[in-house]
Design a protein around this nucleic acid. Structure first.
Lengths: 164, 164
DNA sequence: TATTGTTATACTCTATAACTATA
DNA sequence: TATAGTTATAGAGTATAACAATA
Protein backbone atom coordinates (compact mmCIF):
# COMPACT_ATOMS: atom_id res chain seq x y z
CA UNK A 1 0.00 0.00 0.00
CA UNK A 2 0.95 3.62 -0.54
CA UNK A 3 3.78 3.73 -2.98
CA UNK A 4 5.35 7.08 -3.65
CA UNK A 5 3.73 9.42 -6.11
CA UNK A 6 5.09 9.66 -9.61
CA UNK A 7 7.27 12.76 -10.12
CA UNK A 8 4.72 14.28 -12.48
CA UNK A 9 2.07 13.70 -9.85
CA UNK A 10 4.19 15.42 -7.24
CA UNK A 11 4.75 18.37 -9.52
CA UNK A 12 1.05 18.64 -10.24
CA UNK A 13 0.07 18.25 -6.61
CA UNK A 14 2.49 20.90 -5.41
CA UNK A 15 1.57 23.38 -8.13
CA UNK A 16 -2.12 22.90 -7.52
CA UNK A 17 -1.77 23.15 -3.77
CA UNK A 18 0.37 26.25 -3.79
CA UNK A 19 -1.71 28.02 -6.40
CA UNK A 20 -4.90 27.29 -4.52
CA UNK A 21 -3.33 28.52 -1.31
CA UNK A 22 -2.09 31.76 -2.86
CA UNK A 23 -5.44 32.37 -4.49
CA UNK A 24 -7.34 31.67 -1.31
CA UNK A 25 -5.11 33.97 0.69
CA UNK A 26 -5.45 36.80 -1.80
CA UNK A 27 -9.21 36.43 -1.93
CA UNK A 28 -9.50 36.40 1.84
CA UNK A 29 -7.39 39.53 2.11
CA UNK A 30 -9.53 41.31 -0.45
CA UNK A 31 -12.83 40.34 1.16
CA UNK A 32 -11.62 41.39 4.57
CA UNK A 33 -10.11 44.67 3.41
CA UNK A 34 -12.96 45.80 1.22
CA UNK A 35 -15.92 44.31 3.02
CA UNK A 36 -14.93 43.09 6.46
CA UNK A 37 -16.03 39.60 5.42
CA UNK A 38 -14.39 36.26 5.99
CA UNK A 39 -14.53 33.84 3.11
CA UNK A 40 -17.17 31.74 4.80
CA UNK A 41 -19.32 34.81 5.40
CA UNK A 42 -18.95 35.74 1.76
CA UNK A 43 -19.99 32.24 0.75
CA UNK A 44 -23.09 32.44 2.90
CA UNK A 45 -24.20 35.72 1.35
CA UNK A 46 -23.39 34.50 -2.14
CA UNK A 47 -25.30 31.30 -1.59
CA UNK A 48 -28.38 33.18 -0.45
CA UNK A 49 -28.31 35.46 -3.48
CA UNK A 50 -27.63 32.56 -5.77
CA UNK A 51 -30.54 30.58 -4.40
CA UNK A 52 -32.87 33.51 -4.87
CA UNK A 53 -34.88 32.45 -1.85
CA UNK A 54 -34.43 32.12 1.89
CA UNK A 55 -32.57 29.03 3.01
CA UNK A 56 -32.64 27.01 6.18
CA UNK A 57 -29.55 26.70 8.32
CA UNK A 58 -29.14 23.12 7.19
CA UNK A 59 -29.34 24.10 3.53
CA UNK A 60 -26.82 26.85 4.13
CA UNK A 61 -24.41 24.64 6.00
CA UNK A 62 -24.15 22.19 3.15
CA UNK A 63 -20.81 22.63 1.46
CA UNK A 64 -19.95 25.77 3.36
CA UNK A 65 -19.07 24.55 6.79
CA UNK A 66 -18.28 21.28 8.48
CA UNK A 67 -20.26 21.72 11.67
CA UNK A 68 -23.65 23.18 12.43
CA UNK A 69 -22.42 25.18 15.35
CA UNK A 70 -19.88 26.81 13.09
CA UNK A 71 -22.65 28.05 10.87
CA UNK A 72 -24.69 29.24 13.83
CA UNK A 73 -21.71 31.27 14.90
CA UNK A 74 -21.15 32.84 11.49
CA UNK A 75 -24.84 33.51 11.06
CA UNK A 76 -24.76 35.30 14.38
CA UNK A 77 -21.96 37.54 13.20
CA UNK A 78 -23.71 38.31 9.92
CA UNK A 79 -26.96 39.01 11.69
CA UNK A 80 -25.27 41.31 14.20
CA UNK A 81 -23.92 43.17 11.21
CA UNK A 82 -27.38 43.38 9.71
CA UNK A 83 -26.49 41.41 6.61
CA UNK A 84 -28.90 38.53 7.12
CA UNK A 85 -32.08 37.96 9.11
CA UNK A 86 -33.20 34.76 10.78
CA UNK A 87 -36.77 33.78 11.45
CA UNK A 88 -38.48 30.59 12.51
CA UNK A 89 -39.82 28.60 9.59
CA UNK A 90 -43.57 28.31 9.25
CA UNK A 91 -43.34 25.03 7.37
CA UNK A 92 -41.16 23.22 9.89
CA UNK A 93 -41.17 24.71 13.34
CA UNK A 94 -37.74 23.30 14.07
CA UNK A 95 -36.12 25.05 11.17
CA UNK A 96 -34.68 28.54 10.95
CA UNK A 97 -35.08 30.42 7.71
CA UNK A 98 -32.28 32.77 6.71
CA UNK A 99 -32.87 35.78 4.49
CA UNK A 100 -30.31 38.17 3.08
CA UNK A 101 -31.07 41.82 3.84
CA UNK A 102 -30.64 44.83 1.58
CA UNK A 103 -27.50 45.69 3.48
CA UNK A 104 -26.31 42.16 2.84
CA UNK A 105 -26.86 42.54 -0.89
CA UNK A 106 -25.09 45.88 -0.85
CA UNK A 107 -22.15 44.41 0.98
CA UNK A 108 -21.91 41.61 -1.53
CA UNK A 109 -22.09 44.02 -4.44
CA UNK A 110 -19.46 46.17 -2.83
CA UNK A 111 -17.06 43.29 -2.55
CA UNK A 112 -17.72 41.42 -5.76
CA UNK A 113 -15.82 43.61 -8.25
CA UNK A 114 -12.64 43.38 -6.22
CA UNK A 115 -13.15 39.67 -5.82
CA UNK A 116 -13.40 39.25 -9.56
CA UNK A 117 -10.35 41.43 -10.08
CA UNK A 118 -8.31 39.20 -7.82
CA UNK A 119 -9.45 35.98 -9.44
CA UNK A 120 -8.92 37.31 -12.93
CA UNK A 121 -5.56 38.80 -12.12
CA UNK A 122 -4.20 35.74 -10.39
CA UNK A 123 -5.90 32.79 -12.01
CA UNK A 124 -6.97 33.75 -15.51
CA UNK A 125 -4.35 36.25 -16.56
CA UNK A 126 -2.07 33.61 -18.00
CA UNK A 127 -4.69 31.23 -19.35
CA UNK A 128 -6.13 31.22 -22.86
CA UNK A 129 -9.82 30.55 -23.42
CA UNK A 130 -8.90 27.01 -24.38
CA UNK A 131 -6.77 26.61 -21.26
CA UNK A 132 -9.70 27.72 -19.15
CA UNK A 133 -11.94 25.10 -20.70
CA UNK A 134 -9.33 22.38 -20.33
CA UNK A 135 -8.69 23.26 -16.72
CA UNK A 136 -12.40 23.47 -16.07
CA UNK A 137 -12.99 20.03 -17.52
CA UNK A 138 -10.21 18.44 -15.51
CA UNK A 139 -11.13 20.11 -12.22
CA UNK A 140 -14.82 19.42 -12.66
CA UNK A 141 -14.04 15.77 -13.09
CA UNK A 142 -11.77 15.81 -10.06
CA UNK A 143 -14.24 17.70 -7.94
CA UNK A 144 -17.13 15.43 -8.80
CA UNK A 145 -15.03 12.45 -7.88
CA UNK A 146 -14.03 14.06 -4.59
CA UNK A 147 -17.64 14.73 -3.73
CA UNK A 148 -18.45 11.07 -4.10
CA UNK A 149 -15.63 9.90 -1.94
CA UNK A 150 -16.55 8.83 1.59
CA UNK A 151 -14.88 11.32 3.92
CA UNK A 152 -12.45 8.58 4.97
CA UNK A 153 -13.21 9.58 8.51
CA UNK A 154 -13.01 5.97 9.50
CA UNK A 155 -9.77 7.18 11.00
CA UNK A 156 -7.63 4.61 12.75
CA UNK A 157 -8.35 4.93 16.44
CA UNK A 158 -5.30 6.98 17.16
CA UNK A 159 -4.34 9.56 19.72
CA UNK A 160 -6.38 12.69 19.80
CA UNK A 161 -4.30 15.60 20.96
CA UNK A 162 -0.59 15.56 20.33
CA UNK A 163 0.17 12.04 19.31
CA UNK A 164 3.53 10.76 20.37
CA UNK B 1 -13.16 47.89 -14.29
CA UNK B 2 -14.24 44.46 -13.14
CA UNK B 3 -16.63 43.01 -15.63
CA UNK B 4 -18.22 39.72 -14.78
CA UNK B 5 -16.33 36.53 -15.39
CA UNK B 6 -17.07 34.48 -18.47
CA UNK B 7 -19.26 31.46 -17.68
CA UNK B 8 -16.44 29.06 -18.48
CA UNK B 9 -14.24 31.02 -16.11
CA UNK B 10 -16.85 30.76 -13.37
CA UNK B 11 -17.14 27.05 -13.90
CA UNK B 12 -13.39 26.63 -13.75
CA UNK B 13 -13.01 28.86 -10.73
CA UNK B 14 -15.70 27.07 -8.76
CA UNK B 15 -14.46 23.61 -9.64
CA UNK B 16 -10.90 24.50 -8.76
CA UNK B 17 -11.88 26.18 -5.53
CA UNK B 18 -14.12 23.41 -4.32
CA UNK B 19 -11.72 20.66 -5.28
CA UNK B 20 -8.85 22.38 -3.53
CA UNK B 21 -10.99 22.90 -0.46
CA UNK B 22 -12.10 19.27 -0.31
CA UNK B 23 -8.56 18.06 -0.83
CA UNK B 24 -7.18 20.36 1.83
CA UNK B 25 -9.80 19.32 4.31
CA UNK B 26 -9.21 15.62 3.71
CA UNK B 27 -5.46 16.04 4.04
CA UNK B 28 -5.81 18.00 7.26
CA UNK B 29 -8.07 15.36 8.71
CA UNK B 30 -5.65 12.61 7.82
CA UNK B 31 -2.61 14.40 9.24
CA UNK B 32 -4.42 15.19 12.46
CA UNK B 33 -5.90 11.71 12.89
CA UNK B 34 -2.77 9.74 12.09
CA UNK B 35 -0.08 12.04 13.36
CA UNK B 36 -1.55 14.81 15.47
CA UNK B 37 -0.13 17.33 13.02
CA UNK B 38 -1.65 20.43 11.53
CA UNK B 39 -0.92 21.05 7.89
CA UNK B 40 1.51 23.84 8.70
CA UNK B 41 3.36 21.60 11.13
CA UNK B 42 3.54 18.92 8.47
CA UNK B 43 4.93 21.46 6.01
CA UNK B 44 7.61 22.50 8.46
CA UNK B 45 8.78 18.94 8.99
CA UNK B 46 8.63 18.18 5.29
CA UNK B 47 10.58 21.28 4.46
CA UNK B 48 13.33 20.37 6.90
CA UNK B 49 13.64 16.87 5.48
CA UNK B 50 13.50 18.18 1.95
CA UNK B 51 16.24 20.70 2.62
CA UNK B 52 18.45 18.01 4.08
CA UNK B 53 20.00 20.52 6.46
CA UNK B 54 18.97 22.71 9.37
CA UNK B 55 17.10 25.86 8.43
CA UNK B 56 16.77 29.21 10.10
CA UNK B 57 13.39 30.43 11.23
CA UNK B 58 13.35 32.94 8.40
CA UNK B 59 14.08 30.26 5.82
CA UNK B 60 11.36 28.09 7.30
CA UNK B 61 8.82 30.86 7.36
CA UNK B 62 9.13 31.51 3.65
CA UNK B 63 6.10 30.16 1.90
CA UNK B 64 4.78 28.38 4.95
CA UNK B 65 3.38 31.14 7.05
CA UNK B 66 2.53 34.79 6.71
CA UNK B 67 3.95 36.09 9.96
CA UNK B 68 7.08 35.32 11.90
CA UNK B 69 5.30 35.05 15.19
CA UNK B 70 3.07 32.40 13.69
CA UNK B 71 6.09 30.29 12.90
CA UNK B 72 7.55 30.88 16.34
CA UNK B 73 4.35 29.53 17.79
CA UNK B 74 4.25 26.45 15.60
CA UNK B 75 7.93 25.79 16.19
CA UNK B 76 7.23 25.94 19.90
CA UNK B 77 4.54 23.31 19.55
CA UNK B 78 6.75 21.04 17.47
CA UNK B 79 9.63 21.47 19.87
CA UNK B 80 7.44 20.70 22.87
CA UNK B 81 6.48 17.52 21.07
CA UNK B 82 10.15 16.72 20.50
CA UNK B 83 9.87 16.81 16.72
CA UNK B 84 12.31 19.63 16.10
CA UNK B 85 15.14 21.26 18.03
CA UNK B 86 16.14 24.89 18.01
CA UNK B 87 19.61 26.22 18.70
CA UNK B 88 21.29 29.58 18.26
CA UNK B 89 23.20 29.85 15.01
CA UNK B 90 26.96 30.07 15.24
CA UNK B 91 27.23 31.93 11.95
CA UNK B 92 24.79 34.69 12.80
CA UNK B 93 24.16 35.16 16.48
CA UNK B 94 20.73 36.61 15.81
CA UNK B 95 19.51 33.57 13.93
CA UNK B 96 17.92 30.40 15.26
CA UNK B 97 18.74 27.15 13.55
CA UNK B 98 16.03 24.52 13.40
CA UNK B 99 16.80 20.82 13.16
CA UNK B 100 14.39 17.94 12.74
CA UNK B 101 14.81 15.22 15.35
CA UNK B 102 14.61 11.47 14.91
CA UNK B 103 11.17 11.57 16.41
CA UNK B 104 10.28 14.23 13.87
CA UNK B 105 11.42 12.04 11.01
CA UNK B 106 9.52 9.10 12.42
CA UNK B 107 6.38 11.18 12.74
CA UNK B 108 6.70 12.32 9.16
CA UNK B 109 7.25 8.76 7.95
CA UNK B 110 4.28 7.62 9.94
CA UNK B 111 2.02 10.15 8.31
CA UNK B 112 3.30 10.16 4.76
CA UNK B 113 1.73 6.94 3.45
CA UNK B 114 -1.72 8.05 4.52
CA UNK B 115 -1.11 11.44 3.06
CA UNK B 116 -0.21 9.92 -0.28
CA UNK B 117 -3.24 7.65 -0.13
CA UNK B 118 -5.52 10.62 0.32
CA UNK B 119 -3.97 12.63 -2.50
CA UNK B 120 -3.97 9.69 -4.86
CA UNK B 121 -7.48 8.66 -3.99
CA UNK B 122 -8.96 12.11 -4.30
CA UNK B 123 -6.90 13.90 -6.89
CA UNK B 124 -5.30 11.34 -9.17
CA UNK B 125 -7.82 8.54 -9.22
CA UNK B 126 -9.72 9.95 -12.17
CA UNK B 127 -6.79 11.44 -14.07
CA UNK B 128 -4.79 9.72 -16.80
CA UNK B 129 -1.04 10.19 -17.00
CA UNK B 130 -1.63 12.69 -19.78
CA UNK B 131 -4.22 14.53 -17.69
CA UNK B 132 -1.75 14.79 -14.85
CA UNK B 133 0.85 16.35 -17.13
CA UNK B 134 -1.65 18.75 -18.63
CA UNK B 135 -2.94 19.81 -15.24
CA UNK B 136 0.60 20.14 -13.96
CA UNK B 137 1.59 22.37 -16.84
CA UNK B 138 -1.41 24.63 -16.40
CA UNK B 139 -1.13 24.92 -12.64
CA UNK B 140 2.62 25.45 -12.75
CA UNK B 141 2.09 28.33 -15.09
CA UNK B 142 -0.65 29.75 -12.90
CA UNK B 143 1.34 29.32 -9.71
CA UNK B 144 4.45 30.97 -11.13
CA UNK B 145 2.35 33.91 -12.22
CA UNK B 146 0.73 34.15 -8.81
CA UNK B 147 4.11 34.17 -7.13
CA UNK B 148 5.17 37.16 -9.18
CA UNK B 149 2.06 39.15 -8.42
CA UNK B 150 2.44 41.91 -5.86
CA UNK B 151 0.32 40.87 -2.88
CA UNK B 152 -2.12 43.65 -3.77
CA UNK B 153 -1.96 44.63 -0.14
CA UNK B 154 -2.13 48.23 -1.18
CA UNK B 155 -5.65 47.75 0.08
CA UNK B 156 -7.95 50.75 -0.08
CA UNK B 157 -7.83 52.33 3.37
CA UNK B 158 -10.98 50.73 4.58
CA UNK B 159 -12.38 49.72 7.92
CA UNK B 160 -10.52 47.10 9.84
CA UNK B 161 -12.93 45.02 11.88
CA UNK B 162 -16.49 44.71 10.70
CA UNK B 163 -16.94 47.27 8.00
CA UNK B 164 -20.31 48.90 7.87
C1' DT C 1 -36.46 8.44 18.07
C1' DA C 2 -34.50 11.47 14.73
C1' DT C 3 -33.79 16.10 13.28
C1' DT C 4 -33.08 21.29 13.63
C1' DG C 5 -30.73 24.57 15.68
C1' DT C 6 -28.49 26.93 19.63
C1' DT C 7 -25.43 27.36 23.59
C1' DA C 8 -21.41 26.75 26.28
C1' DT C 9 -16.94 25.82 26.09
C1' DA C 10 -12.42 25.08 24.74
C1' DC C 11 -8.82 24.88 21.57
C1' DT C 12 -6.09 26.13 17.61
C1' DC C 13 -4.38 29.34 14.45
C1' DT C 14 -3.01 33.78 13.22
C1' DA C 15 -1.56 38.47 13.49
C1' DT C 16 0.07 42.98 15.60
C1' DA C 17 2.94 45.39 18.46
C1' DA C 18 6.48 45.79 21.70
C1' DC C 19 10.71 44.03 22.91
C1' DT C 20 15.69 41.95 22.98
C1' DA C 21 19.81 40.97 20.72
C1' DT C 22 22.79 41.05 17.31
C1' DA C 23 24.58 42.89 12.52
C1' DT D 1 19.54 51.50 11.51
C1' DA D 2 18.07 47.13 9.97
C1' DT D 3 17.39 42.32 10.81
C1' DA D 4 16.24 37.77 13.53
C1' DG D 5 13.48 36.05 16.64
C1' DT D 6 10.47 35.92 20.75
C1' DT D 7 6.76 37.34 23.78
C1' DA D 8 2.40 39.01 25.10
C1' DT D 9 -1.88 39.48 23.76
C1' DA D 10 -6.01 39.57 21.44
C1' DG D 11 -9.22 38.05 17.94
C1' DA D 12 -11.30 34.92 14.75
C1' DG D 13 -12.55 30.24 13.36
C1' DT D 14 -13.93 25.77 14.39
C1' DA D 15 -15.39 21.80 16.75
C1' DT D 16 -17.62 18.80 20.51
C1' DA D 17 -21.01 17.95 23.66
C1' DA D 18 -25.15 19.01 26.00
C1' DC D 19 -29.42 20.86 25.39
C1' DA D 20 -34.39 22.42 23.85
C1' DA D 21 -37.88 22.09 20.70
C1' DT D 22 -40.26 19.94 17.11
C1' DA D 23 -41.22 16.06 13.69
Amino acid sequence: MAEALHPSQMRTYFALTEAASLLQYAVQQQLQAEGGLSYVQFEILAKLVDAGRPLTMTELADGVVYSRSGLTHQAGVLQADGLIARAPSTADQRATVVTITKAGRRRLEKVLPGHIDVVRGLLFETLSAQDVRTLGNLMTRVRDHMREQPPRSAAPRKSRGSAH
